[in-house]
Amino acid sequence: MSAMITLEGLSIGYQAQSPLATDINVEVQYSDVLALVGLNGSGKSTLLKTIMGLVKPLSGSVKLDVVRSHDIAYLPQQARIEKGFPIDLKEFVSTGLWTQTGWWRSMRNYDKEVHEAIERVGLSDMTKVHLSELSGGQMQRALFARMLLQPSKLLLLDEPFNGVDEATISVLLEQLKYCQEQGATIVAAIHDLELVKQHFDQCLLFHPSGLLQGNSKSLLDASNDNAIEQAPLEVTTDSRLDLLDHA
């Protein structure tokens, strides 16, 4: 059985002379939850964009077992959302119905689903609130609600918990778990190592010495909780197993 994502000999970056990461050989299986961990500028976001097709690979290949424009929900780090746009929360979340409704089909038939998605992220009493009046955390919840409406098989999330409060993080984590239970595969760039250890089984560590894929706890513990701060990294042979398997 093929994997959800297969990256072979992949080099990522914006200029061929200075790639951010090279020779990436990774497989992400169906319903896996994978965290991308590494220093700022190490290439986590660029890898997500490359998988999404927004950045072309410098070399190598990205194979997906889904249709990009239909089955992937991508949550960028700093969404270029025009918050002053004259629209309320419910209408904003409804834009997640794009795959189902396209340019013309009515959104009315999906009213129940929209309300359910909003309820899941705990914003039920704010459906009529204008977009510009949402706080950072509420906006992130709204983005998650919109994502829940998409019938996606693969979620690509770039720092989804950045700058949001603890309560929001736990609501959003709960929703990610729900998505996984529904069969979605999740790849998320996350800088909070504790969060990764607690909630993500697997991680892909962007390190100057190369990319390491393995169990989050053993990989991150092996590096004294400061994996992404210190170099060279000491990792156990076990932690390297996955990486070697795919290399």
């Binding site: 959302i81 629209i87 834009t95 409704t101 340019w103």
Partner: peptide, 23 residues
Amino acid sequence: AIIYRPLVLGSLDPDYLASFGKS
């Protein structure tokens, strides 16, 4: 009337619209 919805989404969140292809 024909392009209303993509026009709205393109003004509100262009990256999100782009994630659904080139329409």
